[in-house]
Structure formats: C-alpha cells, structure tokens
Computed example of a mutant assay.
Amino acid sequence: MTECRRLVVPLCWLSLLLAATLGMGQLEGLFRVIEPDSRQVIYDRAGFLTLLGRHLSVVGVAAVLAILIGVGAAIAVTRERGRDFLPLVSQLASMGQTFPPVAVLALAVPVLGFGTLPIIVALLLYGLLPIVRNTLAGILGIEASVREAARGMGMSSGQILRQVELPLAAPVILAGIRTSVTINIATAAIGATVGASNLGDPIISGIVNGNTAYVIQGALLIGLLAISVDSLFSRLPSPGGR
C-alpha cells in the first residue's frame, strides 16, 4: 500500500504527459486563440508520441553513458592507485558542463554529421558533472572508521566497494543522476537544430516560422516530461527501504 501511495504523484504527471501527447489536436481551439492569424496551429510534421519516444531515447542513451563513465571515473579516482587523477577528473567534468551544448554541436557536426549522434555527445558531456561530483561526494564522505570496520571483518577492497561504499553513497549518487537527467531532458531540444528529431522540433519550427503555438506545444511536453521523470526519481526507494 505504501509503494502504491509513493507512485501516485509520478503516475498523475505521467498521465497528464500522455494525455497532452495524444490529445494535443483536441486543443486546436485554444491554440487558435494564441495564433489567430496562422493557417495551422497544431504541429503535424511528426506525431507527438513519436517525438516523445525519440526524445526519451536520446536522453536515455546519453544518461546511461554518463552514468557508466561518470560513476566509473569517480570510483577509479577514489581508489589508492587513482587518487592522483582526482583533480583532473573533477576539472574535466566541470569543463564538460561549462562548455555550451550548442558549441559542442557546432564542433561535433562536421565530424559526426547531422542527426542523433552529435546531441548524444553534447548531452553526455553536459550530464557528467552532477554524476561525477555526487559520486565523489558520496564515496569520499564515508567515514574511514566504516571502511576499517569492513576490513576488520575480512572484506576485500572489491567487497567493501560493492557492499559498503556504493550502498552508503547511493542516495547522493542518485541525486546527481536525477539532476543530470532532468537538465538533459530540456537540453536535448537543441538537437532539433542538427537533425535529431525530438520534442525540440515544434519549438525550432515555431521559432523559424514565428508560430508561438508550436513553441508552446513543444515546451509543454518537455516540461511535463521533465516533471514526470523528476517525480519518479524522487519516489525511488532509498537503500535500506527508507
């Protein structure tokens, strides 16, 4: 029963997202008020459900790569052999987020071509910092006495990492992943400028054609998607069942 209550809010947001995605055409009268002079007020170059799926795919692939690289790098530099590289990894992750995604796209397109790959690279770089930073904070924040107690119980370094450090650091790591994914849901919209079809398509088309209704439709769905995902993350059970 408790688990069901935990999911009520995320399910409400997801239901609203699905309703808006499937029922956007039913709001033509409302958008006609916003754009009375436009011949067409509902974006129809691609279905909104299709665009939503593509958006989730791009963000999902970038998130998986960012988690694997970010958590892996942070773990590596907290080991005895990798501590000398800790400042370097932190600086590289910071540079990835301070470098504008648009600039990453401008540099990546000549090499990778138009399409989905450049935006995945941009989202990967942009999403690394929160994951690396929180993984480092979570692992380095564990008291030395806890590790010593684990060693006293005969645990190996690998066992300490898997059974002690990662479970204790998991809430902090998850918070970093949550921030990274939520930010990238909005950032992914710029992929439409390089041929990566997603929920940014209506926004870019609306800006180019001066159609505010298109912009609102894309922004509305991206906003609902970000809130839905963030709400799901907030309801994930923490280690230990708390």
Rank of each mutant, 00 (worst) to 15 (best):
L161G: 07
V121T: 08
A169W: 11
N134R: 05
G154I: 13
E148L: 13
I119A: 03
T179H: 03
L125A: 04
L161V: 10
A170V: 09
E143M: 07
A150W: 11
G127P: 04
P130E: 13
L168D: 01
N134L: 01
R151I: 11
A144F: 05
A137M: 07
A169N: 07
L136A: 06
I120Y: 03
V146M: 10
L117R: 10
I139L: 15
V181S: 03
S157K: 14
L174A: 09
M155W: 13
V181W: 05
T116V: 15
P171C: 09
G141E: 09
V172N: 00
P118G: 06
A144M: 13
I119Y: 02
T135E: 03
G141Q: 09
R178W: 05
T179C: 06
L140R: 14
V181N: 03
P118Q: 04
L129S: 07
V172A: 02
A144K: 13
P118L: 08
L136D: 00
M153Q: 12
V164Q: 02
L128T: 02
G127W: 03
Y126L: 11
R162E: 08
R147G: 07
I120A: 01
L168P: 00
S157Q: 14
P171Q: 11
V164A: 10
A170E: 05
L140I: 09
V146Y: 14
V121D: 00
S156M: 14
V164M: 11
G158W: 15
G152V: 04
A175F: 08
P118D: 00
I139V: 15
V172D: 00
P171R: 10
V132T: 11
E143A: 15
A169G: 05
R178Y: 02
R133M: 04
L128Y: 01
I120W: 01
G176A: 11
Q163Y: 15
G154M: 13
I160F: 12
V132G: 06
L117M: 13
V132N: 00
P167H: 12
L123N: 04
G158R: 10
L166F: 14
A137E: 07
E143Y: 12
A122T: 04
G176Y: 09
I160T: 10
Q159W: 13
S156W: 15
V132Q: 05
L140W: 10
Y126D: 01
Q159P: 07
L125I: 03
E165F: 13
A175S: 15
A175K: 05
A122Q: 01
L168Q: 11
E143K: 13
R147W: 13
L140H: 03
L174Q: 05
G138I: 14
L136N: 02
E143V: 08
G141D: 06
M155I: 14
M153V: 06
L125Q: 02
L125D: 04
G141H: 13
S180A: 15
G158Y: 15
I177E: 03
V181M: 11
